[in-house]
Amino acid sequence: MNKDQVKGVGEQVKGKVNEVVGKVTNNPGKELKGDLQQGAGKVQKAYGDAKEDAKDRAKHNAP
């Protein structure tokens, strides 16, 4: 697991917390912030996943 995967998951968790807090407190701005954080976290984790896949493929294809 690389740092992009870890940071991505962390952003998703923070985003979910903000989304729930926004819903509970009836704060649409906080809820939107949470949604955006979750989206950014998913993108960062996907980038980290792609880097890991590329590293694994290079390792397996090396002579």
Rank of each mutant, 00 (worst) to 15 (best):
V9P: 02
A46V: 03
K7T: 05
E31N: 08
V43M: 10
K33Y: 00
E19D: 05
K45Y: 05
G34H: 02
G34N: 00
Q12S: 05
N18G: 02
H60F: 14
G10Y: 01
K7A: 13
L36S: 05
G10T: 07
V13R: 12
A62K: 15
V43Y: 07
V6H: 05
G22K: 00
D49G: 05
E11S: 13
L36D: 07
A54C: 13
N2A: 05
M1N: 03
D56K: 15
Q12L: 02
A40D: 08
P28C: 11
A62R: 15
G22M: 05
D35K: 05
G39S: 11
G41A: 10
K3N: 14
Y47Q: 15
D53K: 12
K51Q: 07
L36H: 01
K59D: 08
N18C: 02
E31S: 06
K42E: 06
V13S: 11
A46E: 10
N27R: 08
H60E: 15
G41K: 04
G48V: 08
P28T: 08
A46H: 06
T25V: 10
G39T: 10
Q5D: 10
H60P: 03
K45V: 00
H60G: 12
A58S: 04
R57D: 06
P28N: 01
D49K: 10
L36W: 01
D49I: 05
G39V: 03
K55H: 06
N61D: 10
R57I: 13
A40K: 12
A50M: 12
K30F: 09
K45C: 04
